[in-house]
């Protein structure tokens, strides 16, 4: 993998740090008038998901990380692995629970997910921004109440629990924003 110098650091560049692939978020140039220039770099570690600041000497080089985002559709889980397929090549890839993380509760069959591969191995699975899931259980609530004040918890087919308005009932399909974990609307289908 190629090395990158601090002047090539920009948001989105993937580098290796402490043996872990990282995504650069911000790169700030700092230089005393008469002194050495530094780059104060904000980095997200892709596996532990930790955000940290690291200072580099300007011109310092670091190893790039072979990280690739790919769109794959979710097929099924065998309990140990979650299987995804490239819809053009029909190539399949299996991700483990660690790579799934929170995405596990938003997986819907045939949904396109972003799989981040490091050296060909899935390390992060990002679900679509919105998914549609069936409510398997929620209190009946009051009929005619559309104000949505506070709402009520609802359990979805994947086991995820979200707050929904009182008028939404068991068996209905709702749209959820996976980034915030919040109810968006009833399904339009």
């Amino acid at each position: 993998m190629a090395n990158f110098s601090t002047n090539e650091f920009k948001a989105g560049l993937k580098i290796m740090l402490d043996g872990e692939p990282c995504n650069i978020l911000e790169n700030e140039y700092v230089k005393p008038g008469k002194g050495q220039a530094f780059n104060r770099v904000k980095i997200r570690k892709l596996i532990s998901n930790k955000v940290l600041e690291k200072t580099f000497r300007s011109g310092e080089t670091v190893e790039g990380a072979d990280v690739l985002d790919t769109e794959l559709s979710y097929l099924y889980t065998d309990g140990e692995f979650w299987h995804f397929m490239n819809n053009e090549t029909f190539e399949q890839i299996a991700a483990d629970e660690k790579a799934l993380g929170d995405a596990i509760k938003w997986l819907v069959e045939n949904d396109d997910c972003t799989i981040t591969l490091w050296n060909g191995t899935p390390i992060v699975v990002t679900p679509p921004n919105f998914v549609e899931l069936e409510i398997t259980e929620t209190d009946p609530g009051l009929k005619g109440d559309t104000a949505g004040t506070g709402g009520k918890p609802a359990t979805l087919a994947t086991g995820a629990v979200v707050r929904v308005p009182l008028f939404v009932q068991t068996g209905e399909i709702i749209k959820v924003d996976t980034r915030s974990g919040e109810y968006a609307s009833r399904s339009q289908k």
Partner: peptide
Amino acid sequence: TLLQLLFCE
């Protein structure tokens, strides 16, 4: 260089 680093940061 190290003193400048410590001073800056």
